[in-house]
């Protein structure tokens, strides 16, 4: 066999071997976790920390992140760093010897396999709607057999705001005026970023009795076109409380003067911790939006 053939064969063998190795790595599968009493929880999610405390499980929390600042009792729990999974060490998580880790799948999903292979149970949160919040509260309660407390928490959340008729997004056009107030939630302004239908903030706005002007976009945090903001003419603009922008800076933006919310000075800031955490205070966030709509 000549040299060229030999080369092709060796290359093929290397490629095949690598492919088999890779498949082997993925095929290892998840280790089964025995059902046992969970007593040491590490929470990598601020919303998760709030939920744990609200369900009365705060005593079991052994570590949290820097951003887990509510309720005040959380501050006395040890912190292991920033929110982004890439900025704290997996070792720090393990140093607290948890048997359950509460994490956000979009931020720390890459840690799940590692933790499970070490025998640690992982509660992955991935919230795209208000219903997801309730579903996860119930799932968490199931782990600790506290179903009653979960239902009480959900009722508390729902009682925090006034129930309103919900807009039927199938029939409503975002370009025209209708009986629902149109709200624009500005995540960022360079480039313009707002929330779409897979963000729970979209649900917060809808539950408050209004419509998110970008609810026709499926993505959670899409970059949106400035001209669409103007064309869809929101009557209320919401900003996170820590944003440096306000009505004045928005009114200076070229072309924005024709927007109803600017003309009526309806640019309102909402506490970012309330509205961007899919946790037990989401009901208060909905009420805050309702108050802004008045």
């Amino acid at each position: 066999m000549n040299l060229k053939n030999k080369k092709w064969i060796s290359v093929s063998i290397v490629v095949l071997a690598s492919a088999l190795l890779c498949m082997g790595a993925f095929a290892r599968g998840k280790k089964e976790v025995e059902n046992r009493t969970l007593s040491r929880i590490v929470s990598l999610s601020p919303a998760g920390t709030e939920t744990l405390f609200a369900l009365g499980l705060g005593d079991l929390l052994v570590a949290r992140t820097d951003f887990c600042n509510y309720p005040p009792e959380a501050l006395s729990v040890n912190s292991l760093g920033g929110f982004d999974g890439k900025t704290f060490s997996l070792e720090s998580v393990l140093a607290f010897n948890p048997d359950l880790v509460y994490l956000d799948v979009t931020m720390h999903g890459h840690l799940t396999d590692n933790l499970q292979n070490l025998g640690i149970q992982v509660f992955e949160t991935n919230i795209a709607s208000l219903d997801d919040i309730y579903k996860e509260v119930r799932e968490l309660a199931l782990l600790f057999d506290i179903k009653q407390r979960a239902e009480e928490l959900i009722t508390t959340i729902q009682r925090a705001y006034t129930p309103m008729p919900l807009a039927d997004m199938q029939t409503i056009s975002l370009d025209t005026e209708n009986e629902y107030a149109k709200v624009y939630w500005e995540v960022w302004n360079a480039p313009y970023m707002s929330v779409g239908s897979s963000s729970f903030i979209n649900d917060v706005i809808r539950e408050a009795g209004a419509i998110n002007i970008f609810s026709d976009i499926a993505a959670a945090y899409p970059v949106v076109s400035e001209e669409s903001i103007i064309a869809r003419n929101p009557s209320l603009i919401l900003l996170p409380a820590d944003s440096p922008e306000n009505w004045e800076s928005l009114s200076k933006r070229t072309g924005w003067q024709s927007i109803d919310a600017i003309q009526n000075k309806k640019v309102i800031k909402i506490d970012g911790d309330l509205i961007s955490r899919p946790g037990p205070r989401i009901g208060e966030a909905i009420r805050a939006v309702q108050e802004a709509l008045q």
């Binding site: 920033g82 929110f83 982004d84 480039p191 313009y192 945090y221 970059v223 400035e226």
Partner: peptide
């Protein structure tokens, strides 16, 4: 880390805004 996503978008280039 709050800057990460904004800057990621910026490095992709855009004439938005």
């Amino acid at each position: 880390d709050k800057e990460i996503y904004k800057m990621y978008l910026w490095t992709q280039g855009s004439f938005n805004a």
